[in-house]
């Protein structure tokens, strides 16, 4: 059973239809890259899955060990309440193009803020506060270590390079153990010499079978790291398949046209 199923997802901004019926599925441990020209709806798709935008119609279903969760269903208004959304979106993590770290917290503080707030909601928080806090801190440190930032835990975002900030943002997203981690052009805001360190970290996650959706313009990276590639154009999925097919032998003329812009 696929860990994620998106069915006929649509999104309108007023009269502008930005997603025109997107359907795909993703297996656990797979990395999916989404490519496509500017304005094709890639960011909107990620934002709908993280409920930063409410889809106009369709279905989003996640299957985990704990069972099937219908995160969004236009037929089921129960999925639309604020508290349901807050719970449902935790199946996803999102790494933004512009990092969006919280400037008043250290790197470690950024990573541990949300886990701490969640721990406070636990019924056993009062008795176990100190132990929980230690666990969260240790896990945060471990994640920063995994990102190669153990020695930067006490730094504030403005004291870090863009690449370091983005790696903190990845650790922050991982701290909540999302089932699916989404990246929206994670290296687009970085100087070219800093993209490598971020892509290396994402590659490391892919090697560990993290389920990921990556919107990217880095074709070589998409080719190496992903199990599936989706090419979007004008709010539709034009082509999808393994990278060797979509990126090397695309069937659709539109895909070929798009890729031509990258080969030279």
């Amino acid at each position: 059973m696929a860990i994620l199923q998106v069915e006929n997802l649509r999104k309108n901004f007023e009269s502008l239809e930005v997603l025109k019926g997107i359907s795909f599925s993703l297996e656990k441990g797979e990395a999916l890259s989404i490519i496509g020209s500017s304005g094709s709806g890639k960011t909107t798709l990620l934002r709908c899955m993280n409920f930063l935008e409410m889809p106009s119609s369709g279905r989003i279903v996640v299957n985990t060990a704990a069972g099937e969760h219908v995160l969004y269903d236009d037929q089921n208004t129960k999925t639309l309440s604020e508290s349901a959304i807050r719970k449902n979106r935790l199946h996803f993590g999102l790494v933004f193009q512009s990092f969006n770290l919280f400037p008043q917290y250290t790197a470690l503080g950024n990573v541990t803020l949300a886990p701490r707030l969640q721990a406070k909601a636990r019924p056993d928080y009062k008795e176990r506060a100190a132990a929980l806090s230690r666990e969260i801190e240790e896990r945060g440190m471990a994640l920063l270590g995994q990102m190669g930032l153990a020695d930067r835990a006490g730094y504030y975002p403005h004291q870090l390079s863009g690449g370091q900030q983005q790696r903190v943002a990845i650790a922050r997203a991982l701290a909540l153990e999302p089932d699916i981690l989404c990246f929206d052009e994670p290296t687009s805001a970085l100087d070219p010499e800093l993209t490598g360190e971020v892509l290396r970290v994402i590659r490391g996650l892919a090697d560990k079978d993290t389920t990921m959706i990556i919107v990217t313009h880095e074709m070589t990276f998409a080719h190496d790291v992903s199990d599936q590639v989706i090419f979007m154009d004008g709010g539709n999925i034009v082509e999808q398949g393994p990278p060797a097919q979509v990126l090397e032998n695309p069937r659709e003329e539109r895909t070929r046209q798009f890729l031509r812009g990258y080969t030279n």
Partner: peptide
């Protein structure tokens, strides 16, 4: 706006986002 969105994506409530993220800024 990205500060608010980052808080939302991390499952924070509106109140948590206001008091823990945006107020001090």
């Amino acid at each position: 706006i990205g500060q608010n969105e980052a808080g939302q994506v991390l499952g924070m409530t509106k109140g948590q986002i206001f008091f823990r993220v945006t107020l001090l800024q």
